[in-house]
Nucleic acid binder design. Structure first.
Ligand SMILES: [Mn+2]
Ligand SMILES: [Mn+2]
Ligand SMILES: [Zn+2]
Ligand SMILES: [Zn+2]
Lengths: 148, 148
DNA sequence: TCTAAATATAGACCGTGTCTAAATTGAGCT
DNA sequence: AGCTCAATTTAGACACGGTCTATATTTAGA
């Protein structure tokens, strides 16, 4: 029993979610590939190995996992939602050339920042979204962004 | 000739976009209603008065205006894209109860912030997305968020 | 006024995501 | 192991946001 698999099992138990093979495969993919995958990418990946999962099941599980807090839906540029199994608080970087979404480890805003600008709003959370060129794209001249 | 209309005309001329009635109506709506409207909301608003514009035209113009830099597509929660005619650099606040998207006037991150966390990435821009309750929702007890 | 390029339009089409209804599976019980 | 029932899976229909195509109209400019 691998470390990951026992961690996932425990997460399922804590969330009162049955550890089905399909659900396991979805969460495992997100845990192992921290690239903020879309539902379609997860669907493809899961169906490359066994067990297979239908499109509906991938969506169902992403919703269930999100509700249970084991996965987050992250804001993204395109129309397709992206999912994140990194539960630690963090910022994001979006590469404008290859569209990669990368994690930026957390740091707080200085406590005074934006105090006036925020007016009477009750802020419970925030995130910084950085944009620019990722390391691979920065080093390549191509117009298309570095390839995978 | 109103101040707004001459400003818009000038913007069109500078962007080498023909000032058609439909295009004018789309940009005018965004300039006057700074609520980060969706394409559908703009379509509805424009078709309440003259001139009318087809759905395709609204989308075409939003793309053209975005390419010309007269409008920005802003990240949003739902599946529908939201557009912003506020060209000044600013942050955003998203109300988690009523889904309103509000502008937060710009302030810089302290220059040292996140230096290490950003690694070798070439950051050309950033934005802070705050979440919580807007002023209207903060004051109301309702589960649904304050009404429009 | 004449012409060429830009724009507008209706409707087909596509990708992303949700829903429905029926089949399967899993957990608790005996 | 069998029984039972709720959770889950599944295929396919459906809904929505958005794009594309083909054609008609408008605009800028000569
Ligand atoms: Mn992330
Ligand atoms: Mn804005
Ligand atoms: Zn990149
Ligand atoms: Zn609100």
């Amino acid at each position: 029993m691998s470390k990951l698999s026992s961690e996932l099992d425990q997460a399922f138990r804590a969330a009162a979610l049955r550890p089905t093979a399909q659900r396991y495969a979805v969460l495992e993919f997100l845990a192992e590939h921290r690239v903020h995958a879309t539902a379609e990418e997860i669907f493809d990946a899961v169906n490359r190995n066994d067990p297979r999962a239908s499109r509906a099941t991938v969506y169902n599980n992403l919703r269930a996992l999100a509700k249970a807090g084991l996965v987050r839906e992250v804001m993204s540029e395109g129309k397709a939602a992206r999912f994140d199994a990194n539960l630690r608080r963090h910022h994001h970087f979006i590469c404008e050339r290859c569209s990669a979404v990368e994690d930026i480890s957390w740091f707080d805003l200085p406590p005074s920042a934006g105090r006036a600008a925020l007016g009477g709003r009750n802020v419970t959370n925030y995130e910084i979204v950085f944009r620019g060129s990722c390391v691979r794209c920065r080093d390549s001249k191509s117009k298309q962004g570095a390839k995978s």
